[in-house]
Design a protein around this nucleic acid. Structure first.
Lengths: 149, 149
DNA sequence: TCTGCTTGTCAACTCAGTTGACGAATCATT
DNA sequence: AATGATTCGTCAACTGAGTTGACAAGCAGA
């Protein structure tokens, strides 16, 4: 019996090609409306945590502060996000989606949901829930491993 | 009720951070013995399909031929892979792992398996099988979407 | 006040993967 | 056999995600 470990190994191995395909599909579908992957992550983050600071976003998105800062510059310039002064700290900011930013992230989500719903029909809610659970657990697991070493 | 579509969306969203964590974990663990991600994919491919040609590998790994060619140069130079003339086509080659190459990919797999087995204990074989199934189906799904558009 | 952590900013860099171009070889036609 | 399209190998430039280093300014605790 091989097996479950082999299944897991195989599935993990598939992560990189999967991401490549997701990215390609997303770009082809013109889903991203002039929005890069990083920008999209920030928009999603700010829609979940309105008024977050840059360090907040770093923590949520698990990205380096310098990278987050750079993207924040971009989305501010594109007027998808606006910065307000952070009352708790001088020279620091809180970030909010502009109405335009909200529109963009909403549209992106809607298009993607539509595509995914075509897929989800082929699986039971239990299967999808399991997939979700394992995926998040794996993410956590590898995050911990990376730190410990 | 949270719908299974939300679970799926969330899980798919997690793919990119997951891959970042996997990559970081793999690198930290010194798993890769001087082997890049691309090289590792080629080694794995050749261990599964010994004697494959460059175009074969492109198809299996879903990567562009120029990229595959570049990596093949690298692993040949590192003497992890050797090229033999392709009987079916002049100026073309079939590729085989050298004993050294086999050692490397075997060691990599073993180390990774060991790490993953720590994770897999927390899940039932059924859960892992489901994860595997959905992961592969998603990969296929997005590959198709990318082509169709 | 000194010390150490946090934040914003500028810059250089790595790494995966793609794209373009070109010549030689192969294959399919006629 | 001649021709035209496709395949393969190779060189090269490029994009995009994400990291790393460095520095100056603010903050918090001793």
């Amino acid at each position: 019996m091989t097996h479950s470990l082999d299944h897991l190994y195989d599935a993990v191995q598939a992560t990189r090609p999967l991401l490549r395909n997701i990215t390609a599909a997303v770009e082809r579908g013109s889903i991203r409306k002039g929005v890069t992957v990083g920008q999209r992550a920030i928009l999603e983050g700010l829609s979940l945590f309105p008024g977050a600071s840059a360090p907040d976003l770093c923590a949520k998105l698990q990205l380096k502060r310098q990278y987050v800062a750079r993207i924040l510059q971009e989305v501010r310039q594109a007027e998808l996000v606006e910065a307000r002064a952070n009352p708790k700290r001088a020279r620091s900011y809180c970030y909010w989606l502009t109405p335009g930013g909200k529109d963009v992230i909403t549209a992106i989500r809607a298009e993607e949901m539509a595509k995914l719903s075509r897929f989800s029909d082929d699986f039971s809610p239990e299967e999808l829930a399991t997939y979700h659970r394992v995926q998040l657990a794996l993410t956590q697991f590898f995050a911990d491993i990376a730190k410990e070493a």
